[in-house]
Each structure stands twice: as C-alpha cells, then as structure tokens.
Design a protein around this nucleic acid. Sequence first.
DNA 1: TTACCGGTTTGATATATGTCAAGATTCATG
DNA 2: CATGAATCTTGACATATATCAAACCGGTAA
Lengths: 258, 258
Amino acid sequence: MTNKGGVPASPLPKADNVQQPVSNSRLKIACSNCNLRELCLPVNLSIGEIRQLDAISHLKRSYVRGDYLYRSGGKFQSLYAIYRGSFKTQVLHEDGREQVTGFQMIGEIIGLDAICTDHHACDAVALENSEVCELPFNKLEALSRELPSLQRHLHKIMSREIVRDQGIMLLLGSMRAEERLAVFLLSLSQRFAARGLSPTQFQLRMSRQEIGSYLGLKLETVSRAFSQFQNNGLISVNTRSVELIDLPGLRAFIGKQH
Amino acid sequence: MTNKGGVPASPLPKADNVQQPVSNSRLKIACSNCNLRELCLPVNLSIGEIRQLDAISHLKRSYVRGDYLYRSGGKFQSLYAIYRGSFKTQVLHEDGREQVTGFQMIGEIIGLDAICTDHHACDAVALENSEVCELPFNKLEALSRELPSLQRHLHKIMSREIVRDQGIMLLLGSMRAEERLAVFLLSLSQRFAARGLSPTQFQLRMSRQEIGSYLGLKLETVSRAFSQFQNNGLISVNTRSVELIDLPGLRAFIGKQH
DNA sequence: TTACCGGTTTGATATATGTCAAGATTCATG
DNA sequence: CATGAATCTTGACATATATCAAACCGGTAA
C-alpha cells in the first residue's frame, strides 16, 4: 500500500478545472493543486525545507469508496494529507449510533484526533477513489522542532480544526434544519472555490444519510430541505449534483426567524 | 492585572477537599492541586524544565463571575492555564444566537482556538472567582522546540480538545435531551474525581440557561430533565447543588431507547 | 430488454422539544 | 429584615423534526 521511494509511483493526479502542479514535490503538488495554500503543509517553507518534508513523507495509493484510511482504536502512526479524492470521518457509539464528524477534501490534513491517546478516535472512510500522503508523526514533530514555520503551521492546522468543530457545535446546537443545510452548502461552496473549482456547481460525494448524520438530521429531513431550497429558487438539485443559484439568498437565509 | 515576578502575588489558592501543593512552581501548583497530571502542562518534565516553563509564565489575578478572560476577535497573545475557579467559552453568531462550547476548570488550558488566525474565535467568561496562569504562546512555542516532551504534550492537549469537541458533536447530533444531560453530569463527575473532589456531590457553577446552550436545549428542557432524573431516583438536585445517587443507572441510561 | 437494488423523494402521522406563561425559590442589596 | 431581580420549576399548548410507508429513480447485472 505504501510507497517509500522518493518519486510518486503513479502519474500526477489531475482534477478537472485545476491548475498544473508547479514543482515535483509531492506535498507541494498536493498543495499547488489548490489555491488556498494554508490548507496544506508546505506554507512559508523554503525549497530546501520542503525537500526535508518530502523526505519524511510517503505516497499511499488509491482507496476506493468505502475503504478505511484508519479505524477507531487503531494505533496512531501518521497524519495524512489528502492528495486526491475525499473522505468522511465518523465516531461510533457502542449502542450503534454513528455521527459523521467531517468531510475532508484535497489538501486537508486528517488524523489529528489520534495524537492525544496514540490511538485513532474515529474512522476515516474514502467517499470516492482517493490518495493520501502519509506523514509519520514522529518525524513531523522532529522536523517541526527544526523549522519554526512548520511548527507554527502544524499548530494552526490543529487550532483550525478546533474552531471548525466549534462552528459545527453552534450549527447543531442552535440552528434549524434548513439553516444547517444552507451552512453546509455554503461551506462546500467556499472550499471548492478555494481549490479553483466552481463555487456554484458541484457533485456531492456523500449520501443524504451521511449529510444528515453530519448535520444531526434524518435523511428525509435533508431531502425535504433540498426540495424546499429548490422550490424557493435558491438552488437546483438533482440527486448528487447541485447548483447554487442564489448565493446571497442562501446566506441571508441563515439566522432568519421562521 | 499581570504579575511578572517569579513569586505568586497572592497566597496559594486552596479548595476544599484538595491536597496541598508539593512545590512552589506556579504551574506545578496549578497541576499538583489535581490528581490528573496530564491536564496541565508540566507533565514528564524535569525540575529544571519546569523552572524554564515557570520563567515564561505570569500569574494573573482574580476574575469575578462575568469577567471576560478574552473576547472573540481579540488579539491572540497567550494560552491560559486555569489556576483556580472555572470559565465558560462561547461563540456568538451575528444574529444574536450564542452557543456555549465548553466549561473549563482548574488545570485546563484555554485559548487554543486563537492560534489559527491570531485572534480569539470565542469569548471566555469566568463562572466564579478565578485565577489563571498566562502562557505567552511565542515563548511556549520556542520552549517546546527545546523540550520534545513539552512539544508532545502541547500537541496532545490540542488533540484532546479536538476529540472532546467531536464527542459533543455526537451528543448534539444524535442524543435525546435526557441522554445529553446524563452525559454532561457524568463528564462533570469524572472531572471532579480526577481532581480529588467528590464524583457524586458537587455544585454547578453554571445556570440552566448555560447548560442548555451547551447541550443544544432550552433551559426549561434542562430543568425538566433534572426533575425527571430526580423522580427516577438517579440524582438528587436542588438548584445548583447536585448529588449523583445512581452512577451506574445514569450510565445505563445513555443509549437506551425510550 | 427486464428485473432488481440502493438511494431518493414525498406524504401522513407521531412525538420530543420549544414556546409561552404563571408561580416559586434563591440571591443580592438597601 | 424587606424588597426586588434573577433564576428555576411546572403546566398547557405549539411546532419542527422523526417515524413509517409508499412510490420513484438511476445504475447494474442477468
């Protein structure tokens, strides 16, 4: 599964609508495929520093939809930078309840939950054909002692995750069903835009059930909310393909009474 | 407000039911007041290393109930180790909605949300008379480049916060009102126990409204759930003072249908 | 083509929690 | 001690979302 050599084993990934990579560093490629450089690791690093980071990373090959990147309880070794595709993370309660805690896409770092106990606290499951860069955490820590800008960046990534989770707590704790879906769609829109993809037209990689779990709703409620937005002319939706027709209207919808 | 000297400006804090401090290091004191050493910073550090950490910390004086430790949007300078008392953190939405994102008590670190943008993402408000140790983050980062065990500990604290938030997402996304309150009470119980306090009898420092905001419920619903537990003989409650009578029963309650 | 099969949509109804309102209790203060 | 302001409890009722059920759709395989 892993490829320890210094050169990617497979051709560079190409997504529609994405610029060509600007260097042959795997991590930089994972990053230069998107516009939002902060999402990925090699920010504010010199060429030499990026090479050091490259030296500790491995390219892992494809996961297909449904494959586990890691499982809850598994031993923690590495963080993963998503290189192509997307994942969901979920926590399972012993009584069978599950909660999707996030959807991760290209350029994002996954696995931070495992640091505190040395064991993963959730499952990570591929939503489509995907590839990740593995970043052995011991080596990442050692390198970040040498490179203050890498250290700071690692801290920022963890802090951003905390802030993101708090935003979801706000959503789950105090928003109505349709508001939650609006927030979700706008968040996807923004993340696609940051990667040079269309902010108004995209394919959902997850089911209504998975969206519902993430938003604390049943799948029927999610489906009804989609239909409602379509009836109001805010979006056009056909199963997994979505077009956001009225972005300002969607934004204005959040926080409104009734 | 700050005290830059090497010696605490006020007498050591004493809580009922808590052991005496074992050294005169402010951070170690904040820590040795509790049994769960991992909660606080100077874990696995030598005496000399703790002195280094002490050298970068300041003791801040009392906050009274309602005082802000920091405000959302404020410039990020420092993390804070709670030395005495307790705080709540809350995020505010522009439409006036607020969500309490956590309650923090002695030995816990607060302020991690601010690292990613250099500005605080939430408010931190004292729930009672409280004191904190200020830890200037630049100095903390510099020191953690020198001390790998401090570096790892800082990472664990951030990761633990991520895991905690994901647990609350599970609670908010898929539990019923009474289950949420049971989880909340058991979590408090465990944290008190870890500090050498009674796991079954304690005073709540927050209002029904604040508990409700944290749990995604209205205050009336929280009040009814308290009454329900009391009627079922699981707890005894009188406004802010709570006794957990049947801990196993409370645990068993979580996840049960109906 | 035909027949599945998982996922989605939509309708009818049930229920948990919210909303509104009135008292009761606790707490702060003169 | 008396007063008033918060906070908490409890009841009656409203409503958003869940539940249950049926029909619909798009892809895949026989």
